[in-house]
Each structure stands twice: as structure tokens, then as C-alpha cells.
Amino acid sequence: MSTILILEQVLNGLQFGIMLFLMAAGLTLIFGVMGLINLAHGSLYMVGAFAAAAVAGATGSFLLALAAALAAAAVAGAIIEIVVIRRLYRAAHLDQVLATFALILIFSEGTRWVFGSFPLFLDVPSYLSGPVTLPGGIQYPLYRLALIAVGLAVAVFLWWLTARTRIGIQIRAGENDREMIAALGVDISRLYTLVFALGAALAGLAGALVGAIQSVQVGMGEPVLILAFVVIVIGGIGSIKGAFIGAVLVGLTDTLGGIFLPELFKLFMEPGAATQTGSALASMAVYILMSLVLIWRPTGLFGARA
């Protein structure tokens, strides 16, 4: 196993983690600020990807497609917050799960109704396609490097938003004591709609960015959603910093586990059985990581409360 292969896999893990962060950041904000378990977050990811594919197909511009993804997911998020989610803040978590699960089904069948059952086409723009050679002779797709850059930029933007702006102060205050900031005259329902739309827009952005190298199809959001929940549990609910660290940890564990565990087992097992056992253990790796983190810190790495 060469150094180049290992470095390439580390980059892959990093890129995967940073895309997970875009999903997890919205999820953790919504969970932290509003106390809401939003299973429909994966649907917003799908909405972003479909909006991007539709706009890219009509205009040919990838940047317009990204803008459309942000806008469509934010609008969809704001609408479901106002129509459905708003009624659920005081409800039990089980009711929230039930209602947002219903939203998944509605979004999936609605998308199929509008776009049909066949996957849509969305491709990497020509100026970002193909590989580049990095120092050390690693060939790496330019688009994946761009994904890492965009993800880091979003992370910096979110840090600035929560730490340096008035909205950010309100968000953090809302996390700690929602009655008090309502009493201080902050329009809490408007703040909630805003946070929800922001989280939705991030999910939509992730959907569009990832859609260009994966398939844009109904139900694409749910597998990512599960990992995003793992990320926020590891990182600590409500913490953007935790979501970032957790996402990178999960991305690296998942990617490197998938490569190295089968190789590790090959040292003392015959190759066929080693591949089977290694692959099986690799698919559990992120959950094992989650359990270890929870044993060590029950509230997650940066969580204030359980």
C-alpha cells in the first residue's frame, strides 16, 4: 500500500466529511435551537439536487444551478416550517418524528410526480472536471478539491454568523433559553423560520454539489441523513464546531475503515474471508466510533447537554 494511495484516501475521507458537515450543520442548528428532530432534512438535500439538475438542464450554467438549489431548498424549508413544523415545537419528539417522516414520503412522491421516476442528469462543470496533479504526484479530481474548498468556506461563514453577528447571538440565546429571548423582544417565530431556512439551504447546497458526482434520484437524501445524525451525536447536539469535527471524523473513519480493515484482516486471514469480515466491520466503523465517543463523553464532543 503506497503513500500516494493513503494520502488520496485521506483526501477522499476529508471531502466526504466536509459534505456531511453541510448536512449536519443545518440539522444540528435546527435540533439545537428549536429542539426539533427533522427527518425531512434529507428531502431538502434531494430538493436542492433536483432544482440544480433542472436549472442546469435548462440554462447550462452550474453556478445558476447552485443558486437555484440554495433558493429552492430555503423556500421549501421556510414553507414546511410555517405550514407544518411550527405546530410541532411543543409536541413530543415522537410526534415530530412521525410528522417529519410523513414529509419525507410527501417530498419523495411529489418529486416523482414532477420529475418522473428516472434519475436526472447533473454533471460537473467543464472548468472543474478532470484530475489535477498535486504535490507528491497525487492525481486528484479537481471537483472534489473544489468541494473541500466550498465546505471550508461555509464552515467559516457559519462560524462568523454565529460568533460575530446579531442573528448569531439570537440563535445562541435561543438555544439556551427561548422564553427569555422572546421576553426580550426577539421575534422568536421569525428567528425559527430563518434558522430552518438556513439549515435547509445548506442541505440543498450539499445535495446540488454532491448530485454532480452522484445520481440525482428520489430517495437520495435518506442514507446521508442517517450519517448526518451520527455526526451531530458525535459532535454534540447544537454545536457547529462539533458538527464540523464530527463530520470530518466520520468521513475519515468511513473511508479509511473501508480500505484498511480488509487489508488488516488479510494479514492473518485468507483473502476472501478477510474481504468479507473487513467490509462488514468497515460498515460498522462509524457506529463503533459513535459508541466510543458517547462512552467517553455522553453529550458528544462539544455538546452542552444530552
Binding site: I4, L5, E8, Q9, N12, F16, S215, I259, T275, S283
Partner: peptide
């Protein structure tokens, strides 16, 4: 090499790197 990926897997960067090597 013979690789079994996860059912429903969407990212193949790791496998493609192995193919390259």
C-alpha cells in the same frame, strides 16, 4: 482485486483510488 461495496453506496472515490493503484 475483488471488492464488495455497500449496497446503496454513492461515493466510490476510495474504490477508484484502489483501481488506480
Amino acid at each position: 482485486n475483488e471488492i464488495y461495496t455497500q449496497l446503496g453506496q454513492t461515493d466510490y472515490a476510495a474504490e477508484i483510488a484502489q483501481i488506480r493503484a
